[in-house]
């Protein structure tokens, strides 16, 4: 690259920065439909902004997010199944390796934590892990929907809604319960019921983690100027990181508890006559 071209590129880059910053400051925030308090409160409680689902029900935006995420994931899986998997090679390429690593990771996680019974568990943690990861990244797309009040809002991560978090937490508990009963019958049921706080802890952990990410993002983007102070890439990396962490935490916890309740009971050592006499 010549020196002249370098200077021109630098000038254009700086001009773009100045222009966008000036634009952001001059345009101001305009007439906002909601205050920051209302936005944050709604992000937590979803009381105001509802979206109509196929004209039938009024639901939280997270339900729409969930439907979109599930649709995208299933469509991608179908395309991969039809066009990519039949062309798998014995020595994998990058994409194949990524897919194999993903499947291998969840298989090992399930097998490692629940060595007695893991087939159903693996299927579940693969699905839910992928859902949490891509569901969390979904908020980065910022797809817009109209609410019933006529506001336009960006679709949030599905799990930033407490209902979705409760759904995942309770469903994970249900999976553990099914595993316990099918492996050990009543003993498994007892073991699972003993961990009655599990669905609550899993749900609220997930909700809290995802909500914190959402609130930070809401806060940053409510004040446009902040996005210049805090580069967008940091928000993206933050989202990516907690998507990974939350997917790992929930799948690992589910595997650990599943392994505990499906473990075959150990036979009690028989007491000898001497021990009984003493």
């Amino acid at each position: 690259m010549s020196k002249k071209r370098k200077i021109v590129s630098l000038v254009v880059w700086l001009a773009l920065i100045v222009a966008t910053l000036a634009g952001a400051i001059l345009c101001g925030t305009g007439q906002r439909a909601e205050t920051i308090q209302e936005t944050m409160r709604d992000a937590v409680l979803h009381e105001t902004n509802k979206v109509r689902l196929f004209g039938l029900l009024e639901v939280n935006p997270a339900v729409i997010s969930s439907l979109v995420v599930v649709g995208i994931l299933l469509a991608a899986a179908l395309l991969i199944r039809i066009f990519f998997i039949p062309r798998f090679k014995r020595v994998p390429g990058r994409a194949q390796l990524l897919l194999e690593q993903l499947v291998g990771f969840f298989t090992d996680l399930g097998k490692g934590n629940s060595p007695h019974r893991y087939r159903f568990l693996n299927a579940y943690i693969f699905g839910v892990g992928v859902y949490i990861f891509f569901g969390t990244l979904f908020e980065l797309l910022g797809l817009q929907v109209s609410t019933t009040h006529g506001n336009t809002i960006a679709l949030p991560a599905p799990l930033s809604d407490i209902n979705a978090a409760i759904a995942v937490g309770c469903f994970s508990y249900l999976v553990i319960l099914i595993g316990g009963i099918s492996a050990n019958g009543l003993r498994g049921l007892g073991r699972t019921l003993k961990e009655f706080s599990l669905p609550i802890s899993m749900s609220f952990r997930l909700f809290g983690a995802l909500l914190s990410g959402l609130l930070v993002t809401e806060l940053v983007y409510y004040y446009v100027g902040l996005s210049f102070v805090l580069p967008v890439v940091i928000a993206v990396l933050f989202t990516l990181l907690h998507a990974l962490i939350q997917a790992y935490v929930l799948t690992m916890l589910t595997s650990v508890f599943y392994g505990e309740v499906t473990e075959a009971p150990r036979p009690k050592p028989k007491k000898s006559k001497k021990q009984l006499e003493s």
């Binding site: 997270a62 299927a123 699905g127 839910v128 309770c170």
Partner: peptide
Amino acid sequence: LNIDWQQILLHIFNLIILVGGLYFLLYQPV
């Protein structure tokens, strides 16, 4: 906390479809 059982069931419904779909389309073949 505005917990809505209907929406929870909708999420579980989504999740069941996703888990089953991903298992048959992606996990099992790979």
